Measured scan of single mutants.
Amino acid sequence: MALNTPQITPTKKITVRAIGEELPRGDYQRCPQCDMLFSLPEINSHQSAYCPRCQAKIRDGRDWSLTRLAAMAFTMLLLMPFAWGEPLLHIWLLGIRIDANVMQGIWQMTKQGDAITGSMVFFCVIGAPLILVTSIAYLWFGNRLGMNLRPVLLMLERLKEWVMLDIYLVGIGVASIKVQDYAHIQAGVGLFSFVALVILTTVTLSHLNVEELWERFYPQRPATRRDEKLRVCLGCHFTGYPDQRGRCPRCHIPLRLRRRHSLQKCWAALLASIVLLLPANLLPISIIYLNGGRQEDTILSGIMSLASSNIAVAGIVFIASILVPFTKVIVMFTLLLSIHFKCQQGLRTRILLLRMVTWIGRWSMLDLFVISLTMSLINRDQILAFTMGPAAFYFGAAVILTILAVEWLDSRLLWDAHESGNARFDD
């Protein structure tokens, strides 16, 4: 018995066209964080690309023209004298008006014999932002004059995390709450300039795509075929072959399989920071003279006294001054041990922890910024005066060393310790 099946006739004509040209192939790229070699397709503007294995951002879609970056830099340069030299806060102490600005706080630190601690604050609040705007201006002028731009481009990517104007702005709020127990506070004209400078700096850093600047100024022929001998440069993120001198053909720094002496430098910085954190938390970090009496505060006791007036601000200072430094030390110690013992479990967790400490590390400088600003506000000789204690130097040095330890660690070593050939990683 035959089955009668109805015929289905399409209502619209289906047209099949042959592909007349070869589909576009992607360029081969190595991930600078996990060293995976993959094919990167062509990316349009405002599109980002991520590593298929570790999800690290390979290409950032946010990109401004150099002219727009230069305009932002010149605007920031105009704001800087007002943000640093004009009063941020006014207080009335014992019937006398006192003005506080950024430069005055750094000068008070240096004047009291601790120039190293003052230079830490100076670099993060004044030096690094000033280098940022002058570097962008150098790129703008240098591109037109045919100057060598490689050193500036190499420095810009590392400079971003040292620009800490946003953290200093939080420190202004913390210092205001600490001082309000002794005097009446009012915002100064410099505060508005400083807030504007923070906003412009944040926007500029978020749109400063150094890798795209490398592509514009020093374009290189990408690798179009897969080759395990391809290496990625950690300076400019170019994937290719080393030249005859073993250097990256684009930025001219040595092109090595792994960062040289990464573990040794990381261990040295980490152990030194552990040693410095002990006096930083045991010795007094601030000293207040009130009517001839002397009151010393460690980091913890200062947080407890701050909690009596504002528990939320005390929580912020606790996280930045105690929780973050010790968390960074514990995480980095764990990561280094996992590399030495070739741990194969929990790779995803370790990668996330490394990215976390990379982002939060700079916030530990908050305590030094609060001390710097408070020193310029309260300084009335023996009637009422505020000065920093010996722990300030140890704390600042420990924070900087932990930042350097994270920067010096080559994250690809975590993958080397893991089993080879993993296309995915999980716990």
Rank of each mutant, 00 (worst) to 15 (best):
T374N: 15
S411W: 08
V125F: 09
L156P: 01
M120W: 04
L191K: 07
A320I: 15
V152F: 02
E407A: 05
L353T: 13
R97F: 05
Q108Y: 11
C124V: 06
A423Y: 15
E211D: 13
L23C: 09
S286H: 00
L79D: 03
E21Y: 10
S193C: 02
T239L: 06
F326W: 15
G95I: 02
V232T: 15
W84Q: 08
I199W: 06
V170S: 15
A49C: 11
S338F: 14
L37R: 10
R245Q: 07
I185W: 07
R221P: 10
C266V: 09
Y28L: 15
G118N: 02
I253A: 03
I400N: 05
Q55M: 10
P52S: 11
S372N: 13
L335H: 08
N379K: 08
T9D: 13
L205R: 15
G361I: 03
G346Q: 14
Q7P: 13
P219R: 12
A391I: 02
V189W: 10
A397E: 09
N4F: 09
F194K: 04
G235V: 02
M80Y: 09
G292Q: 05
L191W: 04
I311K: 09
F318Q: 07
I330A: 15
R250M: 09
L414V: 13
N209Y: 05
T5W: 10
I58G: 03
I288K: 00
L283K: 06
A391E: 03
S45F: 12
N44Y: 10
P242G: 04
L283D: 05
G142S: 04
A70Q: 15
Q244F: 06
K57A: 11
T204C: 09
M80H: 08
K13D: 09
V399L: 05
H184S: 11
V198H: 15
R150E: 02
I19Y: 07
P41F: 11
A115V: 05
S411R: 13
T402G: 02
A175W: 01
L377R: 00
L401V: 11
R144Q: 13
L366G: 13
A392E: 01
M388K: 15
G315R: 14
W64G: 14
A187E: 09
R144E: 12
H261L: 03
L156W: 14
V331K: 12
N281L: 03
L353F: 13
L200P: 04
Y50H: 15
L3G: 14
E157V: 13
N4V: 14
I19E: 12
A272F: 01
R158A: 13
V370Q: 00
H184N: 08
F141N: 00
R226T: 08
V317I: 14
L208D: 14
D60F: 11
P325Q: 03
G188I: 11
L413M: 10
A73D: 07
L78S: 06
P390L: 07
F194Q: 12
H418V: 09
L373Q: 10
T11D: 11
A307P: 06
V275C: 07
A223C: 07
R150D: 03
M388F: 03
M76T: 06
R68S: 02
A405W: 08
M72C: 09
V125S: 09
E157N: 11
M365P: 00
P222E: 08
S262G: 06
L414M: 11
C233W: 00
T402I: 06
V189K: 15
A70V: 14
A417S: 11
R380N: 02
V232K: 09
T15I: 11
S176M: 12
V152S: 03
Q344P: 14
L353N: 10
R362L: 02
E157P: 15
G20N: 09
T224P: 10
G20D: 11
R412G: 01
N44G: 08
K342P: 15
S206W: 15
I316Q: 02
A423T: 14
W408R: 02
L282M: 08
V102S: 10
V275E: 08
F238G: 07
V102W: 05
V210F: 12
I253N: 02
L77Q: 09
T327C: 13
L66H: 13
A100G: 04
G246E: 03
I322Q: 07
Q180I: 14
T402V: 10
R17I: 05
V317G: 02
L208H: 05
G188Y: 06
V174K: 00
V189Y: 08
R68P: 02
G346I: 13
T117H: 02
S321D: 00
G188P: 02
L156R: 02
D381F: 08
G302R: 00
A405H: 03
R68T: 01
S376Q: 08
I185H: 04
R247H: 05
G246P: 05
W267S: 06
D416S: 10
Q382P: 14
S308G: 11
Y182M: 15
G292V: 10
A183F: 04
P249I: 07
L139G: 02
V275R: 00
P81G: 06
G127E: 05
A100D: 06
L366M: 11
G20P: 09
C251F: 00
L154H: 11
I351D: 12
L404W: 04
H261V: 03
L276H: 04
L271K: 06
P151W: 02
T402L: 00
R216C: 09
L165T: 12
L270M: 07
V121I: 09
R221E: 09
V163Y: 07
L40N: 10
T201P: 05
P6A: 13
Q344G: 15
